[in-house]
């Protein structure tokens, strides 16, 4: 287990290094600099800015400086927000995204899995058809459409939900529903199909032949096997949701990571773009590692040895 973790962490470092390098050089390959924007700045001001942010250094030096910064978890200053560092933006944005995201994940797990199980156990019943249809819609409709519809109906028309901000618990309803919609539907469908497949397995027949209660057959023998593919999907999903959805945070005006990210792209705020991208990557990689460990705990056939 220890050597497995060591190997995984080494692989993570290498992956991250790739992400950093590619992001860095892509950003620098884009024509124009962070300050070559709409209104033309006087040459001396531009020169001073370039000097201040070391943009006149040779590229390889900038690269190694940046790499050194990232290694100490310092993503440098924002080019566009004076006096604010990328770290500041992450510290202020991530907790907000994580809170909305965390609630969405809870909703996805606590509702998606039970709905999938019920649907599978009542296969071809009206309940099952209803779930299947809802899940298909949930997977097909993009989250910004859900968000827009919620704002239109519940905020503009009925006036019962706030349309922006996060000051009370009702503020969370819209973003959480929009953010969890797709994955909730996906997890319900995945659980359903996985459960149906597992219920056909020989070991389920063995469990019944032992005279076990149907509850034990389902919740002990079937569920643990059925959750294996669900857990696999959960890793990248959790990373994506916890780090926020750019669009949803924009629509509900939530000051999360996604909002800063979208703004930074519009502003050519290079360090923020790079910093947040790398932070996302790091987060996703760690989540996938955690899921792989959980996966191994559920399925004894997976070995951590090498």
């Amino acid at each position: 287990m220890a050597s497995y973790l060591l190997k995984r962490i080494l692989a993570m470092v290498i992956t991250l290094w790739f992400v950093i390098t590619i992001t860095f050089f892509l950003m620098h390959a884009i024509p124009g600099g962070p300050f070559s924007s709409e209104k033309q700045l006087p040459d001396e001001v531009l020169e001073a800015l370039n000097e201040k942010y070391h943009l006149n250094d040779p590229l390889y030096k900038q690269y190694f400086d940046y790499l050194g910064g990232v290694m100490t978890f310092d993503f440098g200053p924002s080019f566009k927000r004076v006096g604010i560092s990328v770290n500041d933006l992450i510290y202020s944005g991530f907790p907000v995204s994580a809170k909305v995201g965390g609630m969405s994940i809870l909703v996805i797990i606590l509702m998606g899995i039970p709905i999938g199980i019920i649907s599978a156990l009542k296969q071809n019943s009206p309940t099952d058809y209803f779930v299947t249809i809802m899940a298909t819609i949930g997977v097909a409709v993009p989250n910004f459409v859900i968000a827009t519809v919620i704002i239109y109906i519940f905020s503009s028309r009925l006036g019962i939900l706030p349309s922006h901000g996060l000051t009370s618990w009702v503020h969370y309803l819209g973003p959480v529903v929009s953010l969890s919609g797709f994955s909730l539907a996906f997890v319900a469908r995945l659980t359903r199909s996985s459960m149906l497949e597992v219920m056909q397995q020989d070991y389920i027949r063995t469990a019944r032949a032992k005279g076990l209660d149907e509850g034990v057959v389902i919740f002990k023998h079937a569920l643990k096997n059925a959750l294996i593919p669900v857990v696999t999907y959960m890793g990248p999903m959790i990373a994506a949701i916890l780090t926020g959805s750019f669009v949803i945070e924009r629509i509900f005006a939530i000051p999360g990571m996604g909002k800063y990210f979208v703004e930074s792209v519009g502003n050519r705020d290079y360090t923020v773009i790079m910093g947040i991208t790398i932070f996302y990557a790091l987060f996703a990689i760690v989540m996938i590692l955690i899921v792989d460990i959980i996966y191994g705990l559920i399925d004894p056939r997976i070995k951590f040895s090498d």
């Binding site: 020989d202 063995t206 469990a207 643990k224 399925d299 004894p300």
Partner: peptide
């Protein structure tokens, strides 16, 4: 079942729960 009448099946590779 399992108490007075027990049963074993064809494929032992799949008849036991892997987890």
């Amino acid at each position: 079942r399992g108490n007075q009448i027990a049963m074993i099946f064809q494929d032992p590779m799949t008849s036991l729960n892997p987890v």
